[in-house]
Amino acid sequence: MFKGIVGSRWRLPIAAVSAALIFAPLIIPVFWIYILTLIFVTALLAISLNLVLGYGGIYQFHHAVFYGIGAYTTALILTKTSLPMWVGFGAGPLVAAASGLIIGWFCVRLTKLYFGMLQISLGSLVWIIVSRAYSITGGDNGIHDIPVPTLLGSSNGVYYFTLIIFMVSLVVMYLIVKSPFGCTLQATRDNPQRCEAVGINVRRHQLAAIGIAAFFAGVAGVLFVGLERSVFPGLLFWVFSLEVFVMCLLGGWFTFAGPIVGAAVVVALRTSVSIYTDYWTLVLGVILILLIFFLPEGVMGFLLKRLEPRPIEEGRPLADVAG
């Protein structure tokens, strides 16, 4: 049924990378295993954003809020209730998706920049509430030492757990992108008015995409809890959202795997830069400017352009297309 959905020349590299990741813990030091796990979590978040940003053309400026909601939901269920742990892990993505649908329901009535503004304000509202509700969320301090299943006790356990969920999520999201739903979503990005004219309910389609993206952001949030065993308001701060935005841009936001590259670069850079200097955001800013000037299609977009035999159309301003 899924035959031919992944181009044949990609199969070998994908298999090689997967194999390398599976055997990585045998070779790499523990610290870098931790970093790899963090990259998986962040990459999942970035890809989920790209689902609405790159494929849907939706200015979801504050995507991290769903990441935070997923993480907090799990954290709260694990610490404040006596429900079984799997309930906590399952509830995170679902609550994130539900909040995505609620916030999205308000936002899809607006277009482009106005959508982004309303999305930021609603997201910031959630952030404010979370960072002030000391009695429930611990406010600025967050929640720490969250009990997790023994499976996640060792760094290798966390690594494999995260890797498996990450891989499964990737496959599911890839299928969604290649499905009629995904194809139609890209059409709404290119030309919403035309979509209406061929019988597509654009708003409902966008809302569904936001719900799906929020779900996977929630999955990433839950994985973060499994990895760090703590949550804090910074997870749903809007500056972090912009950082995720940068990952999509850096990797290439018209490609599926681009955000993974972006997340890997940003996380790895942050880790190594932080060793030498406190001025990480300066470095990030400079990188971003260099990207905007010299590599606007991102790393993956650039590589694909070099590799593709068939002509890819000229970098056409998205704003023009959407009118």
């Binding site: 200015y59 920049l113 912009l242 935005f245 940068v246 841009l249 406190d278 001025y279 990480w280 955001t281 300066l282 990030l284 800013g285 400079v286 971003l288 400017i289 905007i292 000037f293 606007p296 301003p317 998205l318 704003a319």
Partner: peptide
């Protein structure tokens, strides 16, 4: 910088100002 970008996509301009914000913040810290 910015004056070289006016022909670019809207989103790129927004991201550019974001980058400037990041840089200025760290310069203030410095």
């Amino acid at each position: 910088l910015l004056s070289h970008l006016y022909q670019r996509e809207h989103l790129m301009l927004i991201l550019f100002t974001f980058a400037i914000g990041l840089i200025l913040n760290d310069l203030v810290k410095f």
